[in-house]
Nucleic acid binder design. Structure first.
Lengths: 258, 258
DNA sequence: CGCTCGCACTCCTCTAGACGACTAGCTGTC
DNA sequence: GACAGCTAGTCGTCTAGAGGAGTGCGAGCG
């Protein structure tokens, strides 16, 4: 791997020059995904810089999400995650009737092993923004369903669903195991036939808690997707607030020109 | 502002404790958007740590996109950007007929001053992924329109449009000024009445070039949105590849259950 | 009054060194 | 053969110091 040398006269500082060299090596393919970068000691020797300078160069690449460091092992070029394409078809009724929730239906198509853990169900008063989305009165309780999704054993998404308690109480929606087809199948069984969804999409850096729960290396953004489901009477019957590891997702939407 | 003290016995390292203190002060509202954080010297004195340790704490918050530092001035709590909500209505024909392109139509509703600069138009062979999206043969040239959008003078998005040259050649689409209503108005005038759009949404950290062009502080992700426009004959007539400053956008989609 | 210069303060970059914690492979013992 | 322990190599964290560069304000000069 050719790394070149520092130009102390240049206005670009040394740590940035080193970062640029390494980035170029990655982009040229000299460093493949999974490969180990030169160690800090190697960079110090090659460029004749102090340890902190070498570290700062690597820090730069970490912030771009290009490499991950593992204590005691080294710094590695980030392997690409298997990307999940999410199209609106994932909520198709035919999947539910086949007993599959959206995440499992996806898994079959995309060829990964789905898993769900950290399922928690409770009954509480919703936060204000959720209450507004559900058109609930101030004192309207909701059933809160929180869980984490994994693809091939790696966490990729957390989700929290809020369902008005007057709908969910006494159904399997309020139990840990919702049964085949998931929440939406249960909602339709009890008369809330689904009509529309709205989704709000944004992206930001994760909080420390989110980073831990999703096992994200630093420099990885998350996609925030908030979905509201409406039944045929136009009543919002569920709000689902999800936090997705951004590199693992590609969202697809299709809409008519008007 | 109450910052507490370090607990050297704790397993959480000092720099992280300091970062947590500062983060908490921001979240409690003791540090408002735009406020200056304690200087490095102040943190050193308060916590009895070395300079690099104080800097590392601030680096932590920068990576989360919560603060921005300005050499010679200080470190400031990041003021929230004016958020643009993008709904699919932004491409409504009625806006075009009123002479407004999507971005301008939006500006009116959201109350910011729109601007476009760095407009460049060329004619070239498209990259493979664009060619595939446009269903073009290997040797089919496209007109490439590149530009940057600003809201209240601040860059928020860059966009590159690709239009098959057999459609765009000889029209204002191939000129710098496309005229009232933008590209889509011109396409409809020459018989390519628009029927559908598809959008693919993802998020990642920006490259150095993107960060410069959008004026992004470090720790700010971007949203990548690739839109394909189809005319009533189902032919793809434009692909638009956009890079948006993530904190400035909220995308909204609405689709029927099926 | 207006302007320039200098200074204090801020963050930026780098150096040189220390200890700690984790990993992986090797070695010697049982 | 299985296992414990050692060791070299790696990254993580911290210290104490240096010079540089950009900002903003006030003092002094014209």
């Amino acid at each position: 791997m050719a790394l070149g040398a520092l130009d102390r006269a240049e206005d670009r500082p040394p740590y940035r020059q080193i970062a640029d060299h390494l980035r170029a090596a990655i982009e040229r393919g000299e460093l493949q995904p999974g490969d180990r970068l030169p160690s800090e000691a190697a960079l110090m020797a090659h460029y004749h810089v102090a340890r902190m300078t070498a570290r700062q160069a690597i820090q730069e690449l970490r912030g771009e999400g290009r490499v991950v460091s593992e204590q005691g092992r080294g710094v590695f070029v980030r392997p690409p995650l298997p990307v999940r394409r999410l199209a609106s078809e994932r909520f198709a009724r035919q999947h539910r009737e086949a007993g599959l929730a959206a995440f499992s239906a996806d898994a079959v198509k995309a060829g990964f092993t789905p898993d769900v853990d950290q399922i928690e169900v409770s009954r509480e008063l919703p936060p204000p923004d959720i209450r507004k989305r559900l058109h609930l009165p101030d004192n309207g309780p909701v059933v809160v369903r929180s869980r984490r999704y994994l693809a091939d054993g790696r966490p990729v998404e957390t989700a929290v669903s809020y369902i008005p308690a007057d709908i969910a109480d006494g159904t399997r929606i309020a139990e840990v195991d919702t049964g085949p087809g998931g929440i939406y199948a249960r909602l339709e069984e009890i008369g809330h036939v689904l009509d529309r969804f709205t989704e709000e999409v944004s992206a930001r850096m994760p909080t420390a808690a989110e980073r831990r729960r999703l096992g994200l290396p630093s420099g990885t953004p998350v996609i925030i997707l908030v979905r509201t489901a409406f039944d045929v009477t136009r009543r919002p019957v569920e709000v689902c607030d999800t936090v997705k590891s951004a590199p693992a997702y590609l969202l697809e939407y299709d809409f008519p020109a008007r």
